[in-house]
Design a protein around this nucleic acid. Sequence first.
DNA 1: AGCACGCCGACT
DNA 2: GTCGGCGTGCTC
Length: 821
Amino acid sequence: MTSPTYAQVVFNLPLPGAFTYRIPAALQDRVQVGMRVLAPFGPRKITGYVVALTDTCDASLKLKNLEDVPDTLPVISPELLALTRTVADRYHAGWGEVIKAALPAGLDDEEHELFSLSPQGEAALQTSNLPSAAQAVLHLVHKRKQLSRKQIRHALKKNYKSHTLATLKLEGHLHTETRLRKSSVPYKTEKIVRIAADAAPQDAVETLLARSPKQKELYDCLQNGELPLPELAKRFPKYSGPLRQLREKGLVETLSTQVSRFDGEALDLSAAAPDGPLKFTPDQEKVYATLNAALDAATFHTFLLQGVTGSGKTEIYIRCIQQALDAGRTAIMMVPEISLTPQTVFLFRRRFGENVAILHSGLSAVERYLEWEKIRQGEVPIAIGARSAVFAPLKHLGIVVIDEEHDGSYKQDSTPRYHARETAIARAQAAGAVVVLGSATPSMESRHKAMNGEYQYLTLPKRIGTRLMPTVHLVDMRKERDERKNYSIFSVEMKRAILERMDRGEQVFLFLNRRGTANYVVCRKCGFVFECPHCSVSLTFHSRSKILMCHYCNLTRVMPGHCVECGGEVIRFSGFGTQKLEEETRALFPAARIARLDRDTTRTRSAFEAMYRDMREGRIDILIGTQMITKGHDFPGVTLVGVVYADLSLHIPDFRSCERTFQLLTQVAGRAGRGTVPGRVVIQAHNPDHYVYDYVARHDYNGFFDKELALRQRLHYPPLTQLVTLAIEHPSEAQGEAYMQHLQSQLAPLIREAEGVELLGPARAALYRLQDQYRWHFIFRSRHDEALQALAHKAKQLDAIQKPPGSQFKLTLDVDPVNML
DNA sequence: AGCACGCCGACT
DNA sequence: GTCGGCGTGCTC
């Protein structure tokens, strides 16, 4: 039998097709479908993926040989090859791009040509009779000894010419050496600062630092124990000078340590009561019986499990996964990125021990690779992770659980723009697996499909045990201001409720849907709001550094003393972030022990765990936080949840802002009263008449769904239609506008031919200017998936889209967009 | 995407 | 006349 002579290879590039390569005799029996290969592609050599092996090929192609095969085993199975193909087609991405996304990061090799100076080049450098461009290259290479092409180009910026480099190489002035960089990224490390082991005795230090208060202060701080550099930077914004001097004096040392977050092993597994067989409520039993039957049948089936917070969804997931395992099959458990906390991991580790692999962005590339490898080798039958876990290389997949299925983070917002929920369903369909979508507040899409019978609908309407749903109180902040003349962040009711909890020794969550200090700076008199000149979003005031900052492009401005519009008038801060809320709360409740949880304060695992422990053990009275506090944590002592500015998320210009607000508020409310004391929720709003609050207050998901569905129906929005957006960015407004007109004229005839597809736009994006780019979008909308897909494909082929005028246009096609800003 | 080629205007 | 910028097209 002859082995195949050609390999079909795809690359991590936005190209539609595969490329054919000849397999040289030496590699003949080493190449298999699903392996990575190093292939010459134009002037470079890059990693590709073998998607097929053939004996024949198109004779018109001038073929090149494969360069190398780094794998002994395929990195991607036929099953996942097929899935990635489907995803690539659906989301208009390159097949190779999707394969790349399905593999752990840092797996690719890249070939580097390292340039160095030859003796002849040294001589030429002395005589300098070459063109100035060539001289510059020689100088650079002389100075830095060995450089890659990329480094040379980077150093020379606009002065780089590939031709100059090629000529120098040809003439023998430069030597090249090819190196293969195994790009397995090293462990994620963190710099730690501590007092040097062989530091001088205390009195010597005192005299040494007597005249350096800054250094002394830093040194004293470190005497309480070593600190990670980021932590130090927070306490001493200007640490670098003093630290350097301390190091030079030999008093402190810095070292790198490996950081490994979120693996859950730091939690003491033995401390937890080993849970016996799970005892189910009748509701849970009923749901489980249905899932049980589907798992037994081992055929594709999708369920939507709608269960209020605390209704015991997780126990059902666990038992279903166990059942799949017992039947010799494997499981994927997907959670939103933000929920993959040590506690979540702990829950599954406690139940399944070493049978769980965790795929998380908090892991270093090596750690993630090791977890992935465990799955691929079949050592571990359960994969837990965020979006990308949908591609976990498990065999015999039996069940996919998607917790918080409504969460927006399941849609990737960069290429390939796949939706992990839809992808999971596609995978399960091919594998004959069961899908369980779980949520207290299902997405409109999933709930609608359950209504139509596409998914089977299951509910857990009650909390477990005697725990009651929290009572929700809505406070009208306009009345508070106008009638009670209360200009504080806290309404009278909120204040009273907090004081009550403190008297009773119970805990409080204060929730704010923003971070930063003051959201914007506004002139009280003329209403002028300071905006980012590049992004048309309001600038955020940071009190610590007294600057205004754009959270999109990082622009910083000194806080102005006067309004620039009407001059010299009073400027006040309206709106605020968790930091400001913390200040106000401390001022108002001086006796309370207050902590803040957001990305600023709990970036490190130790900080997070310390907070978590303090909270569980009642050493914190009030916890202030953003969305982070709504997911994956269970604090039984919390009996009051306060939402400070509920309106914020309602005013986002997106047709889903209402749905998101409902989900968010319901989620936050669910944090209240998980212990034995019934919870209370106080929501402060400036426009409390909005219907969304009513449904939140009554815990009426179904009512909200009906209302919102009617609205979507009237406005022709998903889930009654499907959308594809074409987003365009350009630095020039005029050129962009002109191109929009042209595009519209090209798209119009396609739309006329297509059956039941509409075209909306061109419209300005909600964030019209972002990072010096003007942004527009077209929206294709249809009730018919096939027609919409067909149109999107046709539109993509359009000359006007394939070759926009000039190189500065950036076009993005997004199927089923989730974030439309 | 990333790279080279080729055309253009702006300088010596 | 050369240099450097930018647009265009190709990659088995």
